[in-house]
Design a protein around this nucleic acid. Sequence first.
DNA 1: TGGCTCATGTAATCTGTTACATGATTCT
DNA 2: AGAATCATGTAACAGATTACATGAGCCA
Lengths: 184, 184
Amino acid sequence: MANTKKMDYVLLGLLDHEPMTGYELKRRIDTTLRFFWSGSFGSIYPTLNLLEKEGKVQKKDVSTNGREKIAYSITEEGRKALKEWLALPAEKDELRYETLLKLFFGNENGLEEALCHINRFEEKIKAELPILRLSVTQLSHILEEDTHKYYYLTALFGVKTFETYLEWCEEARTLIAGWQQKDH
Amino acid sequence: MANTKKMDYVLLGLLDHEPMTGYELKRRIDTTLRFFWSGSFGSIYPTLNLLEKEGKVQKKDVSTNGREKIAYSITEEGRKALKEWLALPAEKDELRYETLLKLFFGNENGLEEALCHINRFEEKIKAELPILRLSVTQLSHILEEDTHKYYYLTALFGVKTFETYLEWCEEARTLIAGWQQKDH
DNA sequence: TGGCTCATGTAATCTGTTACATGATTCT
DNA sequence: AGAATCATGTAACAGATTACATGAGCCA
């Protein structure tokens, strides 16, 4: 994608909270940002090295025994860059739902198959929702801490949209059942 | 993105409904699939030529006067490929919301700015919702036509999630207002 | 001892966007 | 006459994933 790169800011944003290794950053992305962002090692590590060259993060070797480990922390310059980007309006919010694509063209294979796609989608959402709900609950108790307010708002977004997805699954199933009955 | 290419199937799916030119396909993507998919000319035209080489679509020159115009129609082979792909489970449903990213890291710049991001997001959604609502209403009257059932299900998804986005905007604003008062 | 997790990184490859190039028609 | 839209396409480039390469520590 020849789109403006956002990995820089994802990493700076996470490091703004606390210093971390690339491996920990990856895990953070896969857990906390999971429902609205993603990223692979193949883009995390090179970006970290780039940010270091630009003076936006600082490396620190924290290897334990023989195990290589590099902790990164944000610099003043990095914080400045992050602040500037945050102040800019979001360029693009993007949904790329393959499930919807398959459903949209579903006529080719019929209602039964559409139902399968909906059920699979529902299962995925149902698997993720408890984790999201838990973080909303946990965060709601510690909102005095300023950063938690922002985490809470995003987690709330996740819970609400995921709950709507499930409602839609129900509704879609009911509609399909009705249509199937009519076809005798 | 080194992700499995889906443009092939997007085009095949659209052409399965009726023959179209590349230009019309682009417009169709930008209107009907708008809220869950996107694509540029730079990927549409090359993909069409590739699909033709693979025998999945057929070209037909339908130039009017001096204006070049190439209509594409799906072939049996193309339909077969589409069917097969449709039967496969969706690999990846992806949300990439820059707004949420900026909100998540929002502590760096404060509540006032978070509010701006939420308001801008709300405006975008409010601008799109009427079109989505209209297509749900229109489709609901012509559900006898089989293809419309599938369009209806996806449009319904769009309306429901977009409405939830707006609810979240309201809620987020209320929460922020409360927090701002406390900070007096 | 074998497998999983921790840990860092590179290279090949893919997909997609942006910007450019070109030209006709239609609307005002 | 000029602007917007219709219409097709290419080339440069960007951003990301996947698979590979390497190796240590920990647990059963």
